[in-house]
Write a protein that binds this DNA or RNA. Structure first.
Lengths: 224, 224
DNA sequence: TGAATAGTGTCTTTCAGACAATATGCC
DNA sequence: GGCATATTGTCTGAAAGACACTATTCA
């Protein structure tokens, strides 16, 4: 790659990162959107993101932009795809390296008023029209999330440290948008070696408390 | 993404594409390397690639660079991952959008002498030390190829239009680097609905000729 | 007719999927 | 004791994996 090189010799596209942040809240899969303050697409909703700085990695840029625009941090982060069609941004050439991020609902609280950005979680079944090609990014990421649910422990990114098997099943049902058989689900989850029991849940209500589990590893693990 | 914008306002990294081209030749999985003519890594082997032009898509850049540096065209192409660590290029910040490409051995002939680039296929078991982080790109792509073999028809990219089941099995064995049971392999391949018989192979030698098949679709198809 | 590769079937094991009754804690 | 959720096992069908012999062409 990269032949005889002179920084001034080539026109260079701009390089941005955009982040598709998922969370589960009230039995709904939601994504974070921010309202644009400038043209183009002024006042439209878009994925949080921005330009990559010269001395940060792409991952670092994704984390930084997410926090700057929404206050959300401590997320699971995974690169999705790089979108680079010449006309995707009407101003000039902008390549976007996109990321998927996952966060546990209890871990986020969008920053209070006084902030520069208006950020809000939207249920994926009820999204506004998105700026640029962000709808494509969303669809790509949703597909990745659904797919990885099947052969990794990626759901750790959406759950608190301790959770019940019912909580876990709920994550699957909400993301896949279908109900699963409880016995088969538990059999499968306990057969792959990802979970450890930790104690007994008492909190609940007027009913039998459930066993609490945690993931053996809070990092991506492939199970096939 | 992309807030108030002024083309001159931000330092911009350079954007390159690098292509990991696989082929199968003489029962070996090989990748295409080119020898660098300039610093850094002058005279080292590296993946073909180069800078993205302002008016071409990333895919187009990958196709163009591959042809410019090796003469190879008509490949299956798939984006792999974008590498952007700040120090991956010692000169300046260069982000590389990487691609995996597949080509049928009979479809390529590296351009003859007089060309600007020295390009050569190397068996993956015997690669030279690669420039930049190209070894990482290779490992990432090899993993992707091996994985996709299992749930897609991606092998069409490495085979001629017509091939025998033995040819197909050979592709799997060479890529996965292990031998497979002939009966189980054929049963599986014929059960998924990807192949069509076309005629009878006569060419061979002093032995029974094999049925020829072709892929129903020469585009990526997921079988799970 | 012998060399070389093509082509084929059964058994076992494993896993996914359908399906409903009992157990436990709390009020 | 009643309510609400937790927990558990069996059967069936499909697919993966182990395993070896017969068929066909050509020299």
């Amino acid at each position: 790659m990269v032949k005889g090189y002179d920084v001034t010799k080539y026109d260079r596209p701009s390089l941005a990162v955009d982040v598709l942040l998922f969370t589960i809240d009230s039995d709904h899969l939601k994504i974070l959107l921010v309202r644009r303050k400038d043209e183009p697409f002024k006042d439209s909703w878009s994925l949080p993101g921005g330009f990559v700085k010269m001395n940060e990695s792409l991952d670092e840029a994704a984390v930084r932009e997410l926090e700057e625009e929404s206050g959300v941090k401590n997320v699971y982060l995974e690169q999705l795809y790089t979108f680079g069609s010449p006309k995707r941004d009407p101003r000039t050439r902008v390549i976007s390296v996109t990321y998927m991020a996952l966060v546990t609902k209890s871990h986020w609280s969008l920053r209070a008023s006084g902030d520069v950005y208006q950020a809000e979680f939207f249920p994926i079944a009820d999204l506004p029209k998105l700026a640029f090609d962000h709808q494509d990014i969303f669809l790509y990421g949703l597909e990745r999330l659904r797919s990885k649910l099947g052969y990794t422990n990626i759901s750790f990114g959406l759950l608190p440290d301790h959770f019940t098997l019912t909580d876990l099943q709920n994550v699957y049902e909400v993301i896949l948008n279908k109900s699963l058989d409880k016995r088969n689900f538990r059999k499968k989850m306990l057969s792959i070696d990802l979970l450890l029991p930790v104690g007994v849940k008492s909190s609940g209500g007027a009913h039998r408390p459930a066993e609490l589990y945690r993931f053996k590893k809070k990092e991506i693990v492939y199970t096939d």
